[in-house]
Design a protein around this nucleic acid. Structure first.
Lengths: 219, 219
DNA sequence: GTCTATAGCTTGATAGAC
DNA sequence: GTCTATCAAGCTATAGAC
């Protein structure tokens, strides 16, 4: 019984550190945050960081890993649900893109605090020459390849290059949107809000699907 | 004569520092680079950084400012050229987006070394919650508002919210593309290359224009 | 203008008591 | 498991000689 409590508290502390690290890395990037700042926010001593994690870089990797499997699973389930609704024909591009993006919107709607910092972190990694190529590849490529395959079936005449470039444009639009930097609030004079997920889900899949189709049907 | 040489050398040193800072900030972000590393790469002593610039942050601001006016001027000229070709009707969405994006492609084609790091830096800033909202607004909003105005004329029935969200998706696709992280190279197994500007210019305006139109003509 | 030298601080990480 | 104490290194920034 005492053993179980110890294990639970250990897990709790570990998670408090991961939460603090996630939030601060998301705000200021890996290099912009010190282990001390993270542990201050977690309400624990610096040395505990090195008891629970091998190094600052290991802590960062665990922040990334903690949520990636959940996210990829939800996306895969959404895609499979779409495909089950189309036993004979191919799903539409909108439906496939919806399966890729709506899990993010759902997670923000139900567990906003937990996921918003994670998506901000992904956005920064995606745009970083130092981290982007390697980390996005490692964490997301298997899932993305599965989505590309579905898109290839929905757009039978599309070339491989057009398909990958289309996904690339999607990736940029998606990650910037979930970065929630407040830029669109300033630019639009308050007409649009970075945090308005309903406004996003009404527009993003439609916008991107039209782009995919435009490249697929060009000349 | 000696005075002029001094002034020229001063300018040269200053530019060497700015070049080094631009490259390193683009690779590892503001916090990921020290003034010492910048000056080592510039081949000059640390103290010279503080002779030419007030602080690390001032150096960063000057890196941003050095190219932003040139870039915005070229974009504005491209837009005005497009509008001059349409004295009676409105330009197409493709033409307007082309005026926004093609100056970047041209600069990379003619002065690649000088501009590639700058665009990588912009990409990271755009996706950062810490910097994105404020800096992108300060440096680019006047120009972007001018482009939004042109797009409003090209899409007379579009709602204001659709217009701003469309631009937002454009911004994400554009900045990720110029971040050149190598991700698309990995994902596509070599079919696409991050640095292939011809492939980009053939696809990006077309993809994005279709998105704008899809939102503008939705129900 | 460019150098040396250094102040004053923060960093990532560890050793050892309890 | 959690604390105190500490290390060596690196950091931004400046003062002052030439």
């Amino acid at each position: 019984m005492a053993v179980r409590q110890k294990a639970e508290q250990r897990q709790q502390t570990r998670n408090r550190i991961l939460d603090a690290a996630e939030e601060l890395f998301a705000q200021r990037g890996y290099e912009g945050v010190s282990v001390r700042q993270i542990m201050r926010q977690a309400g624990a001593d610096v040395s505990l960081a090195y008891y629970h994690f091998k190094s600052k870089r290991d802590l960062f990797d665990q922040v990334m890993l903690r949520r990636v499997e959940t996210l990829n699973d939800l996306r895969l389930q959404a895609l499979e649900a779409v495909e089950r609704r189309h036993p004979d024909d191919a799903p539409t591009v909108e439906e496939i893109i919806g399966a890729f993006t709506s899990p993010l919107l759902d997670l923000l709607a139900t567990e906003h605090e937990d996921w918003t910092h994670y998506f901000q972190l992904i956005a920064q990694i995606n745009s970083s020459p130092e981290w982007g190529g390697e980390l996005m590849t490692r964490y997301f490529d298997p899932l993305v390849s599965r989505f590309i395959e579905a898109l290839r079936k929905a757009l039978p005449d599309v070339s491989e290059a057009d398909l990958y470039w289309s996904y690339h444009f999607l990736s940029g639009a998606l990650t910037l949107t979930f970065a929630e930097t407040g830029r669109i609030d300033n630019l639009s004079g308050g007409i649009c809000r970075s945090s308005d997920m309903r406004a996003i889900s009404k527009r993003m899949p439609h916008f991107l699907a039209a782009g995919f189709r435009a490249l697929a049907s060009r000349d």
